[in-house]
Design a protein around this nucleic acid. Sequence first.
DNA 1: CATTGGCACTCGAAACAAGTGAGTGCCAAC
DNA 2: GTTGGCACTCACTTGTTTCGAGTGCCAATG
Lengths: 340, 340
Amino acid sequence: MVEDRKLAVLRAIVEDYVSTQEPVGSKALVERHRLGVSPATVRNDMAALEDEGFITQPHTSAGRIPTDKGYRLFVDRLSQVKPLSAAEKRAIASLLQGAIDLDDVVQRTVRLLAQLTRQVAIVQYPTLSRSTVRHVELVTLASTRLLLVLILSTGRVEQRVVELPEALDDDTVAGIRTALNRATLGEKLSDAAARLAEIPEQYDRDDRRPVAVIVAALVEAMSDHRSDERVVVGGTANLARFGDGFDASIKPMLEALEEHVVLLKLLGEATSPTSLTVRIGHEVPYQELSTTSVVATGYGPGEEALATLGIVGPTRMDYPGTMATVRAVARYVSKILDEG
Amino acid sequence: MVEDRKLAVLRAIVEDYVSTQEPVGSKALVERHRLGVSPATVRNDMAALEDEGFITQPHTSAGRIPTDKGYRLFVDRLSQVKPLSAAEKRAIASLLQGAIDLDDVVQRTVRLLAQLTRQVAIVQYPTLSRSTVRHVELVTLASTRLLLVLILSTGRVEQRVVELPEALDDDTVAGIRTALNRATLGEKLSDAAARLAEIPEQYDRDDRRPVAVIVAALVEAMSDHRSDERVVVGGTANLARFGDGFDASIKPMLEALEEHVVLLKLLGEATSPTSLTVRIGHEVPYQELSTTSVVATGYGPGEEALATLGIVGPTRMDYPGTMATVRAVARYVSKILDEG
DNA sequence: CATTGGCACTCGAAACAAGTGAGTGCCAAC
DNA sequence: GTTGGCACTCACTTGTTTCGAGTGCCAATG
């Protein structure tokens, strides 16, 4: 019973602090939250919560603010998912509906996330490595020059121009195309490479070298992890909103946003779209951002997560609302990718 | 003679203010600039300069700072181009040398600009509309499904999947490909569309409809001005450096940086790489950014400017140095595009 | 034993006061 | 046209005071 009230107090502190941005005192608490007890009682609870490390005082004669540990408890046990408003659902549906290609989907998603959460949004491009092959095409450009086109399940298209050491006749090219598709269609890129290795062996002396060149180019295109590292950032203007003490951390924040490698690390491993990753303050794997939190989740066609998206904001954020939005957007994007 | 000294004083004020960020007084001026006259004389000149609107006082008992008009005069008549250091030249050459495709060039350019000028860098993608066709390719994906690939002189590659109303045999496809290339190779996109219109007429009843669909898709890809509006921004972390009074304008700045349309307007019309556009303070076509300046220039293969690049920073910036850097980078990028 | 009202105490923030000095404008002299 | 002298201005700094929200502790209460 007492324990319950202590948690209620913590919840109230978090909610108040998030909305007012100011340390919350015992008196203000009982007024705003009908706790049914006196300020003195709340003070006792606060003292206990402080001993346990869930809240702290900026200075002696001020109210309390939650610690990272306090937010953690709040997120894990005290918050209930806030359902999205109808307007938000509509915004998500209508904005993403009109997307025309993968670039566009990513672009719109980042905008949407930034607008709805009013935080800085980060969206990673679907990784090549976990997507599957939809089609491989070979086009003869000249006698010793081929265009190699690789189409993936995510809609991404990779192309390479291949210079051959010697000419191949059209029938042979057609044969190779069939072989390539047979070996890779529907396969994950990671698996496909192994199966491709066998192809050149099926050709006789004359053709083996050019075929090997083609296969090599394809493997290279499949393992081109450059695009794995692509991330798009949006809503940086929301940084200015943070104001106050957050000003100091705006610089490391801006720096981090330019370092895509850091961003990828922030987003972390892609989790299934059904579960959210929330990292709070010091849990964020980047020293300079210890006053920020990250809310991220995976997304991708079907149930598997091909990439990650999420938001970064001050530890002092509306977790229930943000989490709901991030999850909803991730689900919707996944659905779009599934259909496309 | 007297007029000359007044200009020398203005120059000195601009230089000092830019480097110290503090209002500069008459005494400090004569000490740092060996003007050969007494502070009192300088004061007289300052009073005149203030009357003419080139400098102003933040408050009565402070030194002077340049007005937008003062910077304008400085840029137009008082500054000489600062030659780049060897290190800078090396940095430009080595960073841009390694670029592998158009995306990469743009990416590296924006980084480079941001690093060298320590300002926020903006680079517009080469416009589709003014580039020429290097190659058109058709790939059969399925009996009624083609992949259309358009390769442009700037290295940009556009692709579209085309659904045909009825099947076409391979020979016909090959014929169409030849016709498309013959009509468009080397043409500007704006001219190419007209020449494409005639193609379907050359086919008989059966094939005319699918051919028309293909041509329509190609025209659509060519006139897709979405990518005209693509800009890349870098060096936002430099915003944090501005500090001081510039803090207030960091918010509109961040907002502007998210609005690509605004950015394009800032960069303005693409000018030839030989001439720079400098907009100072209120000259910037965007109310909220009246404490910032823009230095921009065109770039592109050959002498024609396909797009614009530049930087945005506080009016209080090192104009000679920045202008030299922007120009040098633009020239170098143009050269790279020319070769690639 | 949890709860509560009372009370002394702390300490940041705001308000106020005085001192300092860089910088100015003006003027008479050179 | 230039200069030294001089009175004046006013932002900024520093020190002092006041104010009040908020706390911790304690004795009283149901």
